[in-house]
Design a protein around this nucleic acid. Sequence first.
DNA 1: ATAGGGTTAG
Length: 814
Amino acid sequence: MRDFVILGSSIITPPPNSQPPSSSSSSSTPQHRHPIIKPHKPPPLSKLNPLSPRNNSSTLLQTPLKPKQFDTCDIDSEVNPELLANAVLVGIKGKNVRSVIESLNKVESIAKISLSTHLDAPVIANECRQLVTSGHIEEAVELMEVLSRFQLSIAELVQPSDILKRCVLKRKPILAVRYASLLPQALILFCQIISEFGKSRDLVSALKAYDVMKKNLKRPNMYIYRAIIDACGLCGDFMKSRYIYEDLLNQKTTPNVYVFNSLMNVNAHDFSYSLNLYQNMQKLGVKPDVTSYNILLKVCCVAGRVDLAQDMYKELKHLESVGQLKLDVFTYSTILKVFADRKLWQMALKIKHDMLSAGVSLNTVAWSSLINAFAHAGHVEQAIQLFEEMLLSGCEPNTQCFNIILNACVEGCQYDRAFRFFHSWKGNKMLVSFDESNNNNSEQGGMHNVTTVPTGVSSSHILSFTERFPFAPTTSTYNILLKACGSNYYHAKALINEMRTVGLSPNQISWSILIDICGASENVDGVVEILKTMIDSGIKPDVIAYTTAIKVCVESRNFTQALILYEEMQSYGTLPNLVTYNTLLRARGKYGSLREVQQCLAIYQDMRRAGFKPNDYYLEELIEEWCEGVIQDSGEYECEYSYNKKPEIERPQSLLLEKIATHLLKRVADILAIDVQGLTKVEARLVILAVLRMIKENYAFGHSVNDDILIIIGATKADESPSKEILEVQEAIIKLLWNELGLEALPAKTSFAPNDRTKLQNPKLLNLSLKALPADNALASTSGVHTRRPAVLQRLKVTKKSLHRWLQRKVSVK
DNA sequence: ATAGGGTTAG
């Protein structure tokens, strides 16, 4: 490290008299007079480093290494160079690199000893290579560092890309930077180090390398900034890219257009942030280029903002017409995808026309997007026609393009046709062993005619073209084909096996589709088995796989298994998302027992805790079906469910459930009050309905209601109006009781504070309830004495009389 | 130097 810092800074701050490394006169400088190992005259970059994008690196490169100036020290300056050189070679050959390095470090100064004249460069180079290939990169780099101090050019010793790749593999960012610092093309290599770590998804190392580089760079280097920002994007850590950006701004450095483009690209999924970057860019006077606009179009695309994308496109077209900029094939491809995603095939066709009149020819990607617009819209024939047109225009299809055609067939429910294409492209080498007639009959549904009548001509036509092109199916191809299996589980399983025989492996998507297919026959056991197979084969089921499996359970009315999977996924660290919760709650109609409803409520609570917006719609449906549904067929439920059982409360930590539990555990005679304090209006509604259902069911067992029931809504300070939340809950409860259940609900005096005057003075509430609550005003105005109680309980009273009426009703009023 | 296309759950 100590050496590196010096070397690193020497790269960044060239001595005033230094020459660029590519300069042909460099060999005459005094630094380069050593005869055996060639002086610093780098070979062409392309040869030296296949990774480097350009040979002309003069703008990137700063200077050759400045030799380290050793401190004057007490080391023997009379060392015999020949002896030392010999010792070095012996040390190297004896694989004692440490001792070599130590020996060399003892040498005080190149002015006093010209060791290099005595060293045999090819031997050292060979040893260095061996050190690298045997994996001893630390020693190799250290040795090269020492050698570089003796003016020995180390550029030719080993392929830089080879060492760097090993450093990336071994996650040695600092070693990589140390090594790169020894070479004249250090800055190019710096960028490569960062991007290679990024590609191997090792952002930690990329950032370490970046930090070390930054410390040794005098000025911020835009290439390096762009590299680290892209690495953040590759590793999915867009937040890091933002910190780097802020760091730049804090240094009062203005990023260039490339850095801004990379930033926008990495943050493309955050619409407002990207737009903000674009605005800042303009504020700082950085002129956007076509790429900037292309990325902004992509931002609109991922945000699903077709409107904005269209506006932008029009604006760009205008800029083009006044000669300010030229739209390229990327621009057109992106806008094509915008339309393809929305199935706007007419608009996509218009873009194709625009391209042709602008003289921009469609490439494979543009064709693919165009075809996909038709595929998504279910227009199989047009998609295939365009595919042929593409082939005729001389554009070569690739696997993704083939996949789009296969998917077009699948989205058009022409499953058989998808398989025919697949097999013809594959040259019929691998037919899956399944009964094709069975597939035809069971999978085609209403589209059966399509697969037999008009397709023959078109398909064989395409065949004649596509035979010339290589078709290498990928996992995506097989996933599309899996969908083409419809509900034929055996066919799907055969495809999964086929994947393995062609060297592909099923991914999460493959397994999810298989789960879905298996579930079509309500085969819950099969689904559980697939999840197990998935885990055994090293693929962790993701949210979608679990949610699909849960969907199968729910649709097969196996709520218990659904809950097991729900628990299992969390124990494996896979968090349920909104879809998962909705899938579980969607099963509301399938629930009957109190316990199942409670489990459902627990899920609802989990959902809220996980930060998802409670889905009132599902919840209200749940309650309606559970509570009011029972009212409708009140004659049957006694035998169906046992209400003497104590309900099992699974999550006592949940406030809602806790409250429901407290109420439901009480015997009917004890139910005097329903406490809904701290609950939202939806939750309060739930608790009340749950208690009412309990009462109703107990009534069927012969227990009646002996008193009014109080509903405690919340506490209010004596001199203040009830909070907005309390009033909202109260309003909802009154609405529920009066309008939906036909129960009589009146404000109840509280024992804490006799003055309830403020309670119903909220105009909103008055509007809603006064006409239904004739007793209310009288009650509120009776008391005139202010007390100084700290809290007033906001309560409603449900009258015994109305409860009796409600209990005796056989059919719901709804 | 940066940017574009295909497959999964409600």
